[in-house]
């Protein structure tokens, strides 16, 4: 029981820190990557909270696909920027 409490405190703190960095970061790519990390942490917390289904979904969709979409958006824009 104690272990779970400690782990959840750590994860909670990490969640907040990473979220703050993701929001504050000036670099867009970094921000997106931190979001992905946040998502992974969320997966961990889902597992801790006994929600394997949600964890699986969040892992594939939240941290995988969404990050990919973010990156693609930034990628296409960067290319356009370099063209100009």
């Amino acid at each position: 029981m104690m272990l779970l409490d400690i782990v959840s405190i750590v994860i909670g703190a990490l969640l907040l820190i990473i979220a703050f960095v993701a929001i504050q970061s000036k670099d867009l790519i970094k921000s997106v990557l931190f979001l992905s990390g946040l998502s992974m942490l969320a997966v961990v917390s889902f597992v801790l909270l006994k929600a394997p289904d949600v964890a699986l979904t969040e892992a594939v969709i939240g941290s995988g696909l969404v990050t990919a979409l973010f990156i693609f958006t930034l990628l296409s824009v960067k290319k356009e920027g370099s063209k100009k």
Partner: peptide
Amino acid sequence: IKIIVSLNVLEIGLNIFII
């Protein structure tokens, strides 16, 4: 982009809360 990132943070928070 940052706004959408913030939106995702908000949603993740909400999801964890619901669970």
